[in-house]
Structures are given as structure tokens and as C-alpha cells.
Design a protein around this nucleic acid. Structure first.
Length: 254
DNA sequence: ATGGCTTGAGTGTCAAGA
């Protein structure tokens, strides 16, 4: 099974890239973040024509998450239960016996911002819910834009980013807490090129200069991690005209 | 230098992203 995650930064703008990428890669599951649209305008028909089932948890302008899959989805959950949050950041479903959770974790803006406090609180609710989901679904994958660079290896300039949002200790601790539930960072199960990133700033020629961060992740529960054969970042779509600032991340397990 | 792009909203120019 091949599963992937991609922050598309507006599905309206990026639908051609997504359809092209699906045609080439044919992943069993693709999780999308930042669709930035309401459910009523979500492109169900175009995705169905491409062979994909789709579920969406959207809102106007901001956020919005979706799961696309070749197989049927069941037990769909939208939003983190018990967290009163108008922002559409989570959708989950079961595909071929694997629990897929698609998350767009808050950015946090800066560590002295209210949004940073919201991010940490949001992460604590995610942690609690993940524990329950893992008990119910031993084969579980959490895919998405975490807005956390877990390690200095995941940062183009660790000195400049030290203690900044996306790299701060509380955020990295939240990431490690998820690992502590028995989830593995699939990317780090394998040897990877140095300076591997999943996001590059649109400004300052960030992509061409590889000034990036690795903030999009696929965490796998033990039964899936044991059978994981590859995890890679596909930089190809980042080179297209009008790209998303994020690249897709793909993991495969037997 | 708190900028630099990109998107959505909406027709001014700002909020938000990371």
C-alpha cells in the first residue's frame, strides 16, 4: 500500500497538479491539506473521473483537509472529538484495514503569539485522541502538514531557526510525544539525502537554493512501520509552474 | 530592513502562511 500527503495551498489552484500527480503516482491514498474551499465546491467529479473516492472537511479561505483513495473508505471522522474548533484541520477514515488520519496542524505564527498557544493546545488534544484511535486501530498512519521540524537535520539553517516557531522545544516535544505512542517517523526509517525538505518559502528563491524545512510527515504505527519499505519526498511538482510551496511525501508498506 | 511570494476575499489592501 502506498500512501501520501500533500499540502496543496488551495485545491482550486492546484487541482491540475494533483490530477497529474495522481495519474503518474497512483497512490492508494492521498491526504490533502489547505484545500481552502467549502465542501460544496470540492471537485468530487474530477477526482472520481480519475478513479479516486474522496472525503473532505472544508471551509472557505483557510484550512480544509481531504482524503482521496482508490479503495472504499469507512468510519469517517471529521475534526478531533472533544476539541471545540471551527478550523477544519482533521479528517480520518479506514481504507483496506488501515486507519488513515489526515491532519493540518496549526502553524503557530510565532512563539509569542496566541496562535502558538492554540497550536500547543491543539496538539495536546490530538495526542489524547491519537491514543484512543491507536487502541481501536492498531494499523494506523498519521499523515499531514505537522508544521513541526522534528530535528535540526530537518532545517536548512538550524541556528537561525533555533527556538523559532516550527522548531521550538515544546513543538518538538509534542512530536516526540506522538512517537512515544508507538508511531515511527517513516522518513527516518531509511537513509536519506542530507538537507531533505518538504517545504520551501516562495520568497528569496527558497526552492532553488534549497532553503527549506521538513514539516510534512507520515507517522506509522508499529505493524505498518515494520513493513515499511520506502519513504520519500517527491520534489517534482514543486518545479512546476505555480507550484504549492510544499512537496508530496510518500510511504509504502507491504 | 520584520521585507521578500502566494492565496483568498474582493476591487482596497489586508490576513495568513512557514
Amino acid at each position: 500500500m502506498r500512501i501520501a500527503t500533500w499540502n496543496v495551498n488551495s485545491l482550486k489552484v492546484r487541482l491540475p497538479h494533483v490530477l497529474e500527480w495522481l495519474a503518474i503516482e497512483r497512490p492508494d491514498v492521498l491526504c490533502l491539506q489547505e484545500t481552502k474551499q467549502e465542501d460544496k465546491v470540492f471537485p468530487y467529479a474530477e477526482l472520481e473521473a480519475a478513479g479516486y473516492h474522496a472525503i473532505h472537511n472544508g471551509q472557505k479561505t483557510y484550512n480544509g483537509v481531504a482524503i482521496l483513495s482508490l479503495g472504499e473508505m469507512s468510519d469517517v471522522v471529521r475534526d478531533i472529538p472533544d476539541l471545540d474548533d471551527p478550523q477544519k484541520r482533521v479528517i480520518a477514515a479506514t481504507v483496506d484495514g488501515v486507519r488513515i488520519i489526515c491532519a493540518y496542524i496549526p502553524n503557530g505564527q510565532s512563539i509569542d503569539s496566541d496562535k502558538y498557544q492554540y497550536k500547543l493546545r491543539w496538539l495536546s488534544f490530538l495526542q489524547r485522541w491519537l491514543k484512543e484511535e491507536l487502541a481501536r486501530y492498531p494499523k494506523l498512519a498519521l499523515l499531514g502538514d505537522y508544521n513541526i521540524a522534528p530535528d535540526d537535520r530537518d532545517v536548512h539553517d538550524p541556528v537561525a531557526w533555533k527556538d523559532q516557531v516550527l522548531c521550538s522545544e515544546p513543538e518538538r516535544e509534542a512530536f516526540l510525544n506522538m512517537v512515544g505512542l508507538g508511531l515511527a517517523d517513516s522518513f527516518r526509517l531509511f537513509d536519506q539525502a542530507e538537507r531533505s525538505f518538504s517545504w520551501w518559502d516562495y520568497r528569496m528563491m527558497g526552492f532553488r537554493r534549497n532553503l527549506g524545512l521538513r514539516i510534512d510527515h507520515i507517522l506509522l504505527s508499529a505493524p505498518l512501520a515494520e513493513r515499511c519499505t520506502i519513504c520519500r519526498i517527491d520534489k517534482t511538482p514543486r518545479k512546476l509552474e505555480r507550484p504549492s510551496d510544499h512537496a508530496p511525501v510518500i510511504a509504502e508498506f507491504s
